[in-house]
Nucleic acid binder design. Structure first.
Lengths: 143, 143
DNA sequence: AATAGTGTAACCGAAACGGTTACGCTGAGC
DNA sequence: GCTCAGCGTAACCGTTTCGGTTACACTATT
């Protein structure tokens, strides 16, 4: 299924990490996201497995970005969080041999495949650096 | 949220009803969908409230299409089943005043809005009659 | 009156996500 | 070498959503 709150939360925290530039503990990140450290470790763990962040154990440990903001796209984060399609295609599989079911499914599959491909292209075209830039612009305007 | 199995199932059953042309009981429809009559009434009830089918109680009652297949689009069925957007946009609302969260959300919102609008256009452009035609072509090829 | 239908409420079960607790492992600093 | 701050992970719970099921009221035809 689509990443539910995780993609947005990870974008948020990765951009912060990129802007701050240093190392952050799960504890501090949990505060940023209004959640708790275990959830942070679970989610960042997936990003570590995809080479986006690194973790260090022991005293003084924590998490850091191991790519620069312009080397990470939204799609990279999405792919790290969940395998498979972003959109969940709502198909029925009650009567695989029924041509009416087949035709109904095909319409839905094709529409969703096109929407999915659009989303993937959007995600791939957006880097964390662009989000960071938007955020600093927004912040300066607001201030 | 997106209609989970209901949209596909309703397309399936509406096309069958259109092709058969008569009245169907919840019981028979439940058999078509491998489910049970209560689920059928729940779901078809939403379509009735949107003027797509009509129901009659009492002996000899049942459900019938009150529009022809070419007057009903996939979007009509979707709208009858669930209000609001088809796609669920996965944004975070932990820190509404944080510009980084705002910028992350904005990227996701824009990408999903475009994908949603694509889906809506696809759904609106497809009538049940087209599904019926695809199904009969498929059936004749297979046969 | 009997019967074949819809209409609806109430409850259960499965799946997914997030929150929480608990405990093990690791490494820096004293 | 001990302590303690940190990650790693398993286990469990609560919530939500959808589908399945039972139960019962209502209605219209025969």
């Amino acid at each position: 299924m689509a990443t539910d709150g995780r993609l947005a939360r990870m974008l948020h925290v990765l951009v912060h990490m990129g802007l701050l530039g240093g190392k952050e503990t799960s504890e501090r990140i949990a505060l940023m996201l209004s959640t708790n450290p275990v959830v942070v470790r679970r989610t960042l763990g997936a990003l570590r497995d995809h080479g986006i962040v690194a973790s260090e154990g022991g005293r003084g440990g924590g998490w850091k970005l191991i790519k620069s903001l312009d080397q990470v796209t939204v799609l990279d984060v999405q792919r790290a969080l969940t395998k498979g399609p972003i959109l969940h295609v709502p198909i029925s599989r009650d009567h695989p041999s029924c041509p009416v079911e087949w035709a109904s499914n095909r319409v839905l599959e094709q529409a969703h495949a096109a929407a999915e491909s659009y989303l993937v292209r959007s995600y791939a075209a957006t880097t964390l650096a662009q989000i960071a830039k938007d955020a600093t612009v927004k912040a300066s305007v607001t201030t």
